[in-house]
Design a protein around this nucleic acid. Structure first.
Length: 286
DNA sequence: GCGCAGGGGGTCG
DNA sequence: CGACCCCCTGCG
């Protein structure tokens, strides 16, 4: 990965598989802002970062080499060869070929686990604009101010939070789940210990009230580097049953077994390409 | 214009 | 399997 520091910015040269729209709008994260087609802001790790794509180069505005190496390199999963993954997934699979072509610049972000957990608890039975609204207003009240933006609250900011404190955000019944998550994270430093096995980690996540199979898999995939995880929601159920199983009705467990068998340790990558593809083209498939 | 279903990246009892 | 907290949309 070839990059230079120039005039306070980082320039990442000739970066394949890196499209800001694909990365941020494929549904894995919520605290991004579109500035133009090729320019986005993302808030993560208590930093606000503006990125712009110019040709095949990526500009990281106002970014130190230290932050790039310590935070953003891993956040954007720059150690992973997406060209190879796309090729492997697409082999003998016309459906996947189309899904990959639809958003070839997707990368799986490595987000902060506790933020990811709280965010996907909010996401359940909810729609994306409202999820974003809740997370932003929550950050505005409890997160650290960074320039004109607000970081997602760190655990210390919210460890004593009450149900009443959460009522302004209109999280509904999810407030209780957030409180349970905060309590369990506070009580147990190792609840989301990345050195644990996928199974152990998943059991820990499932112990949180309001965290079921789907939310747990999202946290594992989007913030714990467990790329074999395959979160199944209504869209994934739809795309697998319609495109791969000839409209057969299947349970989410059957879908998960199908994905494990077909994509193995790369199921998580497959999930993002397919999820984004079916959501973006759902009108054409119905 | 308003009121009222219907449903949204699920989970719990 | 139905209800759920709340918001938004579509329809009469």
């Amino acid at each position: 990965m070839n990059y230079v520091q120039n005039d306070g910015n980082i320039i990442l040269y000739d970066c394949k598989s890196f499209t800001l729209k694909d990365i941020f709008e494929c549904g894995q994260c919520f605290r991004y802002e579109k500035i133009t087609q090729s320019k986005y802001k993302i808030i993560a790790y208590s930093k606000a970062l503006i990125l712009e794509k110019k040709g095949n180069d990526i500009l990281f505005y106002d970014c130190t080499e230290k932050d790039f190496e310590n935070i953003w390199f891993d956040y954007f999963d720059l150690n992973t060869d997406y060209e190879a993954i796309k090729e492997e997934l697409s082999e003998n699979d016309e459906i996947m070929k189309n899904a990959v072509a639809y958003a070839e610049g997707i990368r799986l972000l490595n987000q902060e686990p506790y933020e990811c957990l709280l965010s996907f608890i909010i996401s359940q039975n909810n729609n994306i604009p409202r999820i974003i609204k809740i997370l932003n207003s929550f950050s505005r009240l409890y997160g650290k101010k960074i320039g004109e933006d607000y970081a997602f609250p760190i655990l210390d900011d919210i460890k004593n939070i009450t149900e009443e404190d959460l009522s302004p955000f209109k999280m509904g019944y999810r407030s209780k789940y957030i409180l349970d998550a905060v309590k369990k994270l506070t009580d147990d430093n190792d609840l989301i210990d990345l050195s644990l096995s996928t199974e152990q980690l998943k059991n820990n996540l499932l112990s949180v009230k309001g965290v079921g199979n789907k939310v747990a898999d999202c946290v594992l995939l989007f913030s714990c580097k467990k790329r074999e995880c395959f979160p199944v929601d209504v869209w994934i159920n739809r795309v697998i049953s319609k495109l791969y199983l000839k409209n057969e009705t299947v349970t989410n467990n059957e879908i998960q077994a199908f994905a494990k068998d077909k994509w193995g340790d790369k199921a998580g990558f497959a999930q993002q390409y397919l999820f984004n593809y079916i959501r973006g083209t759902s009108n054409e498939h119905i």
